[in-house]
Write a protein that binds this DNA or RNA. Structure first.
Length: 328
DNA sequence: CGACAAAT
DNA sequence: ATTTGTCGT
């Protein structure tokens, strides 16, 4: 879910065309979770193939990625590695919420309460190893690069933007600001039915708030992150005030006699010194059309007509494209 | 969520 | 041409 920074973060509205020609590092976990939550039938049942395997994420990856490529965007997916030990509490809480929601979903279905059922179904979404595996397989067949992070995918994606290997991270979460991503795109959707895409610029945000990135991390640790529960009663606005008047988290802890339950230095270093990968390659290839069709239509019950439409968008990039084999 | 059809 | 609704798997 990430740090609750909505109240203090300013964003600028953008349109998809502003991303033409740009490399975007997509937070895979965030993106897949959205697909799994939202691509469902009205009663909340996810899309499934004949064998009963969930395919919502494959639908999302195929249609969104091909649409982004058609618009001239070069997407790369960044997958999570092994999460930090301190994320354990957050992970177990999420598992519990999913378990409860699944029960409430079934109960609502039995009572015939369709809307209620869907609400809980959305919260029951879980990312199994099979879902990650099939997502990577589809990306490979589509010729879209993905990178396996050592730890948090958001940390790796943010690093890639800092290095200039990608223009922005695409994620709904504000955590990438803490990981130092200079640019974050939220609501990266095509037909923007609801929220328009928006761009978060780290330097602008820090300037507006008149704090440093280290202080923004300190605010997050007061508010609560995936790695600590924060201080009860302190939200983003109070957090900013406290860090500004005390200058740092360490001072605030001492002056206000706060208890953070984990060593603040260790918590800060999750964001400041994550384990990162440098030996990655961003290379886009022409799709293996037959492979995509075999995989989606043969194994996962997709319609050949619809898949063909998506493939057309994938290969029909720009006429500046030099080779059919490698785009670069 | 995005594709597609139907309605405005 | 643009919005609204349903289907996809």
């Amino acid at each position: 879910m990430g740090v609750k920074f909505k109240d203090i973060i300013s964003a600028e509205k953008i349109i998809i065309k502003d991303l033409d020609g740009k490399i975007v590092a997509i937070d895979a976990a965030n993106s897949l979770y959205q697909f799994l939550s939202s691509i469902r039938q009205r009663d909340g049942t996810p899309l499934m193939d004949e064998s009963g395997r969930v395919t919502s994420h494959l639908s999302g990856i195929l249609y969104r990625t091909s649409a982004l490529v058609e618009k001239g965007i070069k997407p790369a997916f960044i997958f999570d590695g092994v999460s930090h030990q301190l994320k354990g509490d957050t992970i177990s809480k999420r598992i519990e919420v999913r378990r409860e929601s699944e029960q409430k979903w079934k109960n609502a279905l039995e009572k015939g309460e369709i809307e209620e059922a869907r609400k809980f179904a959305v919260r029951s979404s879980r990312m199994s190893p099979e879902i990650v595996k099939s997502s990577k397989k589809l990306l490979n067949l589509m010729g879209i690069p993905f990178i396996q992070a050592i730890s948090e995918g958001e940390a790796q994606a943010s690093y890639m933007v800092q290095k200039g290997d990608a223009w922005a991270v695409a994620s709904q979460d504000y955590d990438c600001l803490l990981f130092g991503a200079p640019r974050i795109v939220r609501n990266l959707t095509i037909s923007g039915n609801l929220a328009d895409p928006e761009l978060l610029k780290l330097d602008n945000i820090l300037k507006n708030l008149k704090i440093s990135r280290e202080q923004l991390i300190d605010v997050a640790l007061l508010v609560g992150t995936d790695f600590n529960s924060g201080i009860k009663g302190i939200g983003a606005k109070k957090g900013i005030k406290i860090i500004k008047s005390n200058e740092s988290l360490l001072n605030a802890i001492e002056n206000l006699n706060l208890d953070l339950e984990s060593d603040p230095h260790i918590l800060r270093d999750i964001f400041l010194k994550p384990e990162l990968k440098d030996d990655y390659e961003l290379k886009w290839h022409a799709p293996d059309e037959e492979g995509v069709i075999d995989f989606l239509c043969g194994e996962h019950s997709f319609s050949e007509e619809r898949v063909a439409g998506a493939l057309k968008k994938l290969k029909n990039l720009d006429s500046t494209q030099k080779s059919l084999e490698d785009w670069f």
